[in-house]
Design a protein around this nucleic acid. Structure first.
Lengths: 144, 144
DNA sequence: GCTTGACTTCAAGTGAGCTTGAATTTCTAG
DNA sequence: CTAGAAATTCAAGCTCACTTGAAGTCAAGC
């Protein structure tokens, strides 16, 4: 059983295109040994790293943020389950925050439709005379 | 009380930069009358339209999708509260779906860490011999 | 009338996250 | 050994959602 995998195999198993894998390597997100002829040879553990990247992207991290997270992994050894869990633990909060935001938006949608912004009747009452116009400049105060 | 507002005023009240407002107009998301000299004059109701755009973006719609939604509004008259509610009603489902996805991701994070992808111990048991590799090609089957 | 600031258009630039194409080299099966 | 599949690098291109800059016009106060 070979210990390393060529790029096409990693691409096939992860569902991530080879061009993207090269891009990730360039950005330092993954690493590959090289064959005698200079072709990439990925460790099996790279698959988990890629899974982590996809996961992180799904919950809204940029590649740069993912790189920062992955940089926290131990250098010498293959990461353990504990290593991964430590990395991902902090994300629960992030997911919760995003869920809370979406719930807030849904509230706005069914109720006031985003009080102070989208309502036609209610918010005219609470905000007579287009008072928001007097608040001065400020970026995107409607939505944060 | 003037019935229309210049671009800077709309920018100030909405928190959206003038360049973005011009961009939105170009894409047909908002509309402006023109002064004798060719300057944009926005109706007050444009503010609500912009709020709608920001709201839609927050829940993940592209500008193109927002344009499609806004195209459903009645042409002749200023949209009523009912018009807006009708537009935004369908989004509750979308928000719910996104929340459900995030909850699923959170599950994977605390439990198996995305079974079939991130676990080290458990998924080796349920998926011995790297079976995922035998499933053939397919894009991003890990995360959908 | 003049100055100043707000506004105009149009083209080009930005950044994230890749993809595509060209020219070339390496690997593998027969 | 050879054909052809798979890999390489490098530069350029793409989508989205804007921003920036240049060059010029409009509007309002003195």
């Amino acid at each position: 059983m070979e210990t390393t995998l060529p790029i096409a195999e990693i691409a096939r198993r992860s569902g991530v295109r080879a061009s993207a894998l090269r891009f990730y390597e360039e950005r330092g997100l993954i690493h590959a040994e090289r064959s005698a002829g200079g072709q990439r040879r990925f460790a099996r553990s790279t698959l988990r790293r890629i899974a982590f990247i996809l996961f992180a992207q799904k919950i809204g991290l940029s590649l740069e943020e993912v790189a920062a997270e992955l940089a926290k992994l131990p250098d010498g050894r293959t990461p353990t389950r504990g290593d991964w869990e430590q990395l991902s633990a902090a994300w629960t909060a992030r997911i919760d925050a995003r869920i809370a935001e979406l719930e807030r938006l849904r509230e706005g949608l069914t109720g006031c439709i985003g009080c102070g912004c989208l309502s036609l009747t209610h918010c005219k009452l609470t905000n007579p005379g287009d008072r928001v116009g007097a608040k001065g400049p400020g970026a995107r105060f409607w939505m944060g």
